[in-house]
Design a protein around this nucleic acid. Structure first.
Lengths: 204, 204, 204, 204
DNA sequence: AATGAATGAGCTTTCATTCAT
DNA sequence: CATGAATGAAAGCTCATTCAT
């Protein structure tokens, strides 16, 4: 009802590939507001005020408010799918690849793309069925990176359970960090990644 | 935008302690709708239709729409805090207590109180600051049950890391099940509990 | 919006002929609430609370909320028409009669029937056209008492102007006292009556 | 309940300083409707219909319905305070000043600002306590113009009684004209002003 | 008579979206 | 491209009135 208000874009971090174009500014502000206030509780006037334009002007860049949500989500998923793929490529062993995925996903959720990743996860229900279907395909590509590595890990006896279930348990632990983890706190993302890896694998 | 509509209360499970009184019927329907559609996207007219009354009649039982959300959340937290406390009492060893907590929380999220637990977790942002503060105190009592058992586990060397961080990782894995687990699927809640316990503890 | 609330009937004076029957209790409370809060801003629940019954029970005594307003007004006008007639009868000279009318009207507005008289004057617009017409006839009888005396006064040269206009100017001065006069203040009703009489007549 | 309906702005006089801007049109229509139907019985849809816009558009110009009431009242009080001050300035003697005040107040109530003045007087109770306090200060400035002149009149022996009480009696007589006086009737405002002056002063 | 849950029409207000300038 | 007034559907909520008990 009375959410913490944000006055300008200055304190909102630059996400992945978003420049200072009008479109980029809107998406950065939207990711932040949708995350902190929720999509429904953020009005287009809120958004316009933070961007520094009039609400009517938003509709020159995006057809509808939901389109803005979609753009935030698409940005998040494409940017971070690439980040995951890179993590897999860089790992020489399966263990390293799994560690890389965990570390990269923690970074994507708690780093500069944190706002948009949180929106992707927690505002899923705000999408129309059509848009949900569209993003489901993109999410599947993202998830397959995980499932492939977990399947390999299972083949090597590193994990014993169904990769599908295992991924969801690990994914839950990681995405939940959005609700409590602070980079400025006592635990570094690297330490956190090690803890999650320890949970994920049968033994150290 | 066009979410799956629910037509009546008949297919909505009886939650914890909710009887067939008008108030109970409203809370069951609200938990279900708030979970599946989201709080903001559920109108009081939606809710009234499912309950089978006029929208104005809702306000005989609850002062505001947010009050209905609060009642759903309070029901969830009090009922399940009791369930957690019972699980701790029934465990003879720390390991049993931890297994009990995991099993009970999985049940609370995927069983008859699943709707209201999901609402408690995912609609937190819809509460006014005042109500957030009120529930924070109740959530602290709930979380302390976990932290006490995890502290004991650490004292026995069953877990090596900070109980606070550990609880949040485990809690994330468990609450995320709301997004994917189906009781009718291939994995039973008991099997799932064993998998989570395995993740939580250093070794079998 | 947040009017001063009245909790019980105890501090509301007994008007003219209203006893402690349910009907009398409702009318006393209604006169007070309609005057202090306004007719539209007083809910039937407000009224029922002050009377000490449930809102539904009001409708055993009165068909509609407007009927309660009508009853308050009718009580005020009949009781005070009688009071005016008595004042005219008791005056031996025209001057005494006029003084009696002024004193009686001041009493009716600032005394025990003040609430209902204020309602009669200031909630006129809340009446349906039909009810306005009905009360217009009763008000005419009341006003004729004044006009007859003023006509006599004019015949004697006590007043020089049109009785109709004169009555309205005097009546305005008197009914306006409802907004500022307090019996507990420095001016007595008798002194006030003398001041108004002085205004009404050409010379002392 | 079925009050006389107004269909357009064409027959509503231009008040004091209100132009044909959207804001001015709303205030003129509001003053008229609030006066003839009462504030509570006038819906924002009524108001919008008379102005010729949609009800939602009203809230572009005013935050709430009560804000519209406030704007009407503020317009009335500032415009007419200036009119009173001018009347005092233009009078060479105290008698002329008093005559000027009476004439000006009669004009403000029965002339082009009559609607808003009537609203100021009769819808006072519709204001929130906060707004009542705000306007009380403005009304005090207005009333002081009267009290200063009446004090001077008393010093000269023109009136014998307490200026405070005297002003209220005169003010009541004047404001009550709103309920009965018609400019098209047999009495001119100048004649009426003379009658009131005669009432106000000890002798011609 | 009294109750109090239920009604349902109607209220003020919000807000994504449009469009003439 | 940007503006900002206007739209109009829909939201949460109120409240006089009804009626089975």
């Amino acid at each position: 009802m009375e959410p913490a208000t944000v006055q300008s874009l200055d304190n909102i971090p630059h996400m992945g590939g978003l420049d200072d174009s009008p479109r980029g500014r809107v998406l950065r502000a939207a990711a932040h507001l949708f995350r902190t206030q929720g999509f429904e509780r953020t009005t287009v006037r809120d958004l316009a005020r933070v961007v520094g334009i009039q609400s009517g002007s938003l509709f020159h860049h995006f057809k509808t408010k939901e389109d803005i949500l979609c753009a935030v989500m698409e940005e998040a998923i494409t940017y971070n799918t690439a980040r995951m793929a890179e993590a897999v490529e860089n790992g020489k062993t399966v263990r390293e690849q799994l560690r890389g995925l965990i570390r990269a996903e923690l970074e994507s959720i708690n780093g500069d793309t944190g706002d948009s990743m949180a929106v992707l996860v927690y505002e899923w229900g705000a999408l129309s069925p059509d848009n949900q279907a569209r993003f489901l395909a993109m999410r599947a590509r993202y998830e397959n990176l995980w499932l492939d590595v977990l399947a390999a890990a299972r083949a090597q006896g590193l994990v014993t359970h169904d990769p599908f279930v295992w991924r969801r348990l690990i994914g839950g632990a990681i995405s939940w960090t959005v609700t409590w983890y602070r980079k400025s706190g006592p635990v570094s993302l690297d330490e956190l990644a090690d803890m999650v890896l320890e949970m994920a694998l049968k033994s150290k």
